[in-house]
Computed example of a mutant assay.
Amino acid sequence: MAMLKTETPSLAHSGLDQYGAAELVHAFVDEQLHAVQAVRAASASIAAAIEAAAPRLAAGGRLIYVGAGTSGRLGVLDSVELYPTFSWPHSRALAILAGGRDAMFTAVEGAEDDLRQGGADLNALAPGADDVVLLLAASGATPYVLGALRAARERGALTIGIANNAGAPLTREADVGITLDTGAEIISGSTRLKAGTAQKIVLNTISSALMVRQHKVYGNLMVDLKPTNAKLVQRSVRLTMHATGADEASARAVLEQCRFHVKVAIVALLRQASVAQAGALLEQANGSVRAALVK
């Protein structure tokens, strides 16, 4: 069996176990630069994934993440962050992980080898044509993930395969394949390192770009956050002040009227409208602050 590039021992740091603390830090940090380079090299396929996914989400589709081990946990992380950051509904950002929820915290041995379970877990979510399934595997050949991929394709969902080895089954069979050629790891085979970093960058990029397309951002401000704690409440006030030029008291007063919905507060302040009128303008503009301001 040919050795995967991600499993090949690195020739760059064969004396790693003899490094001092400073040398270890430099070696590990410098290795991460390859993750950024690998993502940059895949920019065209990442953009293609965003272009294909955006209209499906606009039509009501869901983001569904699939993975095993580190890759699966990165998918879970991306899915749960979309609600507080962009008010993206929990029901429209789902993640399945080989081994189930317990595998988020404890390795479930052998779970990633179960191709049939991957298909069954994906089918349990009843994906449809408007859904977008993001499948991650450093090797690009994890059976659980491939099972989910094939089930998603059978149901007509858009599939985006993300792997760290060229020519992998995952990227070949997906509607959009993203290859992150991060190469050998500084600790041989430990793909939680730069392979995982590259996957995280891609997930950040795809989901954030899709949220921009769904009008969750005005300029570069996250104006559709859920203020679920004191920090986010204060952030809502600052964002509103920055976008409108209002003082803190005025921004907070309008935010309190609209349950700290930053979008609504911005439109109300800039259009000198009531909260109800601002909400109506946003609805007519499909949630776009920029469009609501010129209506």
Rank of each mutant, 00 (worst) to 15 (best):
L57Q: 09
Q277K: 14
H242C: 08
K231F: 10
R56H: 07
L255G: 00
Q37R: 11
L97A: 00
V223L: 00
D175P: 05
A268Q: 00
G219M: 01
V267S: 09
A98S: 12
R290K: 07
T70C: 12
V29G: 05
G245Y: 07
A157Q: 04
D181F: 05
A38V: 12
S288L: 02
A253P: 02
R101M: 13
A138Q: 08
A129L: 14
L74I: 15
Q199R: 04
T106M: 13
T171R: 03
M211C: 07
A59W: 13
R153N: 06
R213C: 10
K200G: 01
P227E: 01
R172P: 00
N220W: 01
R62Y: 11
H261K: 07
P127T: 15
V223D: 00
A195Y: 08
L210N: 04
S188Q: 14
A152H: 12
N204C: 07
Y65S: 06
T106R: 15
R101P: 14
A93M: 10
N286S: 09
V36P: 05
R213M: 10
T159A: 09
G110L: 03
I178T: 04
M104Q: 12
V133P: 01
I266T: 00
G167Q: 09
I187V: 15
E173K: 07
A280L: 09
Q32C: 10
G189I: 05
I46G: 14
L255E: 01
S79T: 09
G99Q: 05
Q234C: 10
G189M: 06
A58Y: 01
S43N: 09
A249Q: 14
